[in-house]
């Protein structure tokens, strides 16, 4: 199988998943035992609702409705949010929310990896010794504390008791870098602790396995220093699982971000999901979930592409498979 057809097949698989996810959400909406048009326009006239039904495809069957939504979605029309006073474009909301959430996630990933990698390397190097045990046990305990609990404790102590950081809101970088980070620190820490533990654990396990390999002894027999062996010879082949899990954790992060964004009033995409649900904005919900799934699938693809760079063997193995 050639490389191109491998990638085509992979993309096709992911597209199918995407279609099924969005179709599933769309079916779910049709299961709501209430007239959707009434929910969206609670105070409108019946004519207005009829126009809306026709516009959104509520008057068609589930498949017709889905196809209409899909047609709009791929053209960039994500639907509207309906207020008593009028409507707003979902895409306008996402334009504001996406960058915030993405920054939140990128910072979370950077912080998590920056802490987890040295900790993982250290605890693999000292496996079974004191440093390893302390690291493992501390992280295990911290990671079992849900992120909203950490967020609330941070708010209580850092935000309220000592008043070091603002507890609510978001500031774009244009307001100043420090202002921006001041609002990001607590949400990022809340989301990071669990990831740090997961990453450290994965890396430790893989590095311990790699440390037993002959090529490590071989590297030692060349007279290389321990740190050079650890980083150059052990870390790289061990980082594959870490990378995969980092990309795949993006999806979970969006979920975690819903609560964290609502605690800190960051108003990112997680909050948009929540707002759509709380406000019964089902069209907005459908499109927002589709965007999230799109990102998730995208990160899956990123894993596939980047694994070839980290471990050259997978490049050919896949093509030969």
């Amino acid at each position: 199988m050639s490389r191109i057809s491998f990638w085509l097949q992979r993309v096709a698989q992911l597209l199918i998943v995407l279609l099924l996810v969005t179709f599933g959400v769309s079916l779910l909406l049709r299961l709501i035992p209430v007239d959707l048009a009434t929910i969206l326009l609670p105070v409108g006239t019946e004519e207005e609702r009829d126009i809306l039904r026709n516009e959104l495809g509520f008057d068609k069957g589930p498949i017709g409705y889905y196809l209409q939504w899909l047609g709009n979605f791929v053209q960039g029309d994500f639907g509207k949010i309906y207020f008593s006073g009028g409507t707003e474009e979902v895409s306008d909301h996402l334009k504001v929310a996406m960058p915030r959430s993405l920054l939140l996630m990128v910072y979370t990933q950077i912080l998590s990896l920056a802490i987890a990698i040295p900790l993982g390397v250290l605890s693999a190097y000292r496996a079974g010794r004191r440093a390893d045990k302390i690291i493992s046990n501390t992280l295990f305990t911290l990671s079992s504390i849900p992120n909203f609990a950490i967020a609330l404790l941070l708010v209580i102590f850092v935000g309220v008791k000592f008043a070091w950081l603002p507890t609510l809101g978001y500031a774009p970088i244009s307001d100043g870098v420090w202002e921006h980070f001041k609002h990001m620190i607590m949400p990022v820490i809340s989301l990071s602790l669990g990831l740090i533990a997961t990453y450290t654990r994965l890396l430790r396990a893989d590095m311990i396995a790699a440390l037993r390999e002959d090529y490590v002894t071989m590297a030692a027999s060349k007279g290389l220093s321990d740190s050079r062996i650890l980083w150059r010879h052990v870390f790289r082949p061990s980082s594959m699982t870490l990378l995969t899990s980092a990309a795949l954790s993006m999806g979970g992060l969006i979920g975690g971000a819903i609560v964290i964004e609502s605690i800190f009033a960051t108003y990112g995409i997680g909050f948009e999901v929540f707002a759509a649900i709380a406000g019964r904005q089902y069209v907005a919900l459908q499109s927002t979930v589709a965007v999230i799934a799109l990102f998730y699938v995208f990160f899956n693809l990123v894993v596939d592409v980047s694994s070839g760079f980290v471990d050259p063997r997978t490049r050919d193995r896949r093509v030969n498979a």
Partner: peptide
């Protein structure tokens, strides 16, 4: 699995 847990649960 491609919809985050909490998003799915919320929906």
């Amino acid at each position: 699995l491609s919809v985050p847990n909490l998003v799915l649960a919320l929906a």
